[in-house]
Amino acid sequence: MVALEAWFDRNAEGPTIVHTPAELDAVLDTVVTWNAPITVQLLTAEDPGHVLLDVGLDARTGRGVLYYFGPDKPDGCISKGDRTAEPPPIYYFTGSDTEFPADAEIPLAEARRAAHEFMDNGGGWPDGIEWQPRWD
């Protein structure tokens, strides 16, 4: 398990450092209560920028998105869901928006599980998720 920097609140002066699964749940729960498509960016606290996992959560739809970048996926990859959204989903990160592919959304529980797996495996690529190449 590794400590993570969680970036999600544009009004915060810096990241929220999470050391335990309960602290990670607290961050994810906070974002879900905002009731909008919001992205939490997770970085390993010891080496920020080496790997990252963006976890988009939208309580209104019960869906989420993932974007992973790391040495094992230097071009990045995006979650691939079993549905197509029209229009393609947009998630917000500290005030800026990102449009994801129409088939990027997965169940909210899977997005949360991937965040915990990222923490548990030291910032490695979460498996058990279907992935697709990142968009250009």
Rank of each mutant, 00 (worst) to 15 (best):
V2Q: 10
L4C: 10
A6N: 10
A6G: 09
D9L: 07
D9S: 11
N11M: 10
N11F: 14
A12D: 07
G14D: 03
T16D: 09
I17Y: 00
H19T: 11
P21T: 09
A22P: 00
A22T: 04
D25M: 05
D25R: 03
D25P: 01
L28A: 04
T30I: 00
T33W: 00
W34E: 07
I38N: 02
I38G: 00
T39C: 08
V40I: 11
Q41F: 12
Q41Y: 07
L42E: 10
L43A: 07
L43I: 04
T44G: 02
A45W: 02
E46M: 14
P48R: 14
P48C: 14
G49W: 09
V51S: 12
L52G: 10
L53D: 06
L53W: 12
L53A: 05
D54G: 14
D58T: 05
R60E: 14
T61V: 07
T61W: 01
T61S: 10
G62I: 08
V65I: 13
V65F: 00
Y68N: 09
G70K: 03
G76L: 06
S79R: 01
K80I: 04
G81V: 03
R83Y: 06
T84P: 00
P87I: 06
P89I: 11
Y91N: 08
Y91A: 12
S96V: 15
E99C: 10
F100W: 13
D103G: 02
D103F: 01
A109E: 13
F118M: 07
F118L: 13
M119P: 06
D120P: 00
G122W: 05
G123T: 03
G124D: 05
G124M: 03
G124S: 11
W125D: 06
P126A: 10
E130M: 01
E130N: 05
W131S: 07
W135R: 15
W135D: 12
D136W: 08
